[in-house]
Design a protein around this nucleic acid. Structure first.
Lengths: 195, 195
DNA sequence: CATATTGATGACCATTTGGTCCAAAAATAT
DNA sequence: ATATTTTTGGACCAAATGGTCATCAATATG
């Protein structure tokens, strides 16, 4: 027996919640804000997601999945490696410029806010960084095999360096966003590491 | 007329409060936690610092001042430029390794948590990054004039790149700390940018 | 000693917090 | 139609939140 059907799409609710968490962070987001953003009543939200923390995990998972999807699209093995890397970097220049810069990154914000207090969150963030590093490493290995990487550059180390640089750009751009500066940084990175 | 003297040292209280904010962040730190850490009663704390937010600003100012003091010590104009830069990088390797890594950085955490919602905080973080970038730029200009910088590297861009990289290392190390990895990253940075 | 001034303490407060629960509603199955 | 199941909405709740305030203590001044 099926009972009364849901009147909302859980995915939509998660996406709305993700937006609030992204803008305000976990602790600064209140239940009433979540209810308004999702258009759910308390009962519906708790029945569907357990509690605030459960909903947050769903939102974080969504954000992470989206991020990795974009990364995979940029680093598509069928495209030219350097084009892929350039696309990836260009995306970060975009995200650290203008209006979007102030919103920051949910992963970075969550890593700093909950990374060392919430094991479920910590695990997710750790896996994300591991995945991102692995994808960059693969791309750089491909670049190296095509002799497009500067000599003596080790792909795995360069991957870690690039990941740290990109996430750091998101931090600095929270308060000191500057498109030309971001642009110059990634250009210099390319100048020094590829050929 | 002087009245009853203080029974506590405001600087000690600020340092204790800084420790709590550093560990838990602004929103996740409660008044009772602050009172216990500082050994103050509510009345004393509010009389001395106004409110939680006021105390936080004092703690943040302290953290920023300490950070810039260390940076200036590392980049001392009397020392060899490259030694200074290496010392600075080594400090970040240290801070992104082992136990300290999980604690993260109050500036990075605050930038992400309050950077776009609190103008007083935003201003402080912005000035810190500006100051850090300026100090790195000065050091790199000195390195360039001594022909210790790789050709075609612009000091101001390299400064921004290094700052982003270092702050990004703090983010990633929140969940994926790895000393040898941090070490390899800064070594690669040096290999690519100096001579 | 008396008075004035400032600090310390903790009871107290309104508000907000995340979370529960129950009665009504909407669907299906018999 | 009735019974069953699930969702919905919001009243309700205990606990925690940041913040105030009256009282008392400790010092300086006259």
């Amino acid at each position: 027996m099926r009972g009364r059907p849901r009147e909302f799409d859980p995915d939509d609710a998660i996406e709305s919640a993700m937006g609030v968490f992204w803008t305000s962070g976990y602790h600064a987001t209140s239940l009433p804000e979540l209810l308004e953003a999702t258009n759910l009543s308390r009962g519906s939200l708790y029945a569907a997601f357990g509690d605030k923390h459960g909903l947050f995990l769903r939102a974080l998972d969504r954000y992470i999945a989206d991020s990795l999807t974009r990364l995979d699209a940029d680093l598509d093995p069928h495209k030219d490696v350097l084009d892929g890397i350039r696309a990836c970097l260009a995306r970060y220049v975009e995200r650290t410029s203008g209006a979007g810069a102030k919103r920051g990154c949910l992963i970075v914000a969550t890593a700093m806010e909950l990374g060392s207090h919430d094991v479920e969150v910590e695990q997710r963030i750790r896996r994300f960084f591991k995945a991102m590093e692995a994808r960059l490493t693969t791309a750089l290995e491909r670049a190296k095999s095509e002799r497009r990487l500067a000599d003596e550059v080790e792909p795995s180390t360069a991957a870690r360096l690039i990941m740290c640089l990109l996430e750091g750009m998101r931090v600095v751009s929270k308060t000191n966003a500057d498109r030309s500066s971001s642009q110059a940084v990634v250009q210099t990175l390319l100048d020094r590491f590829v050929r």
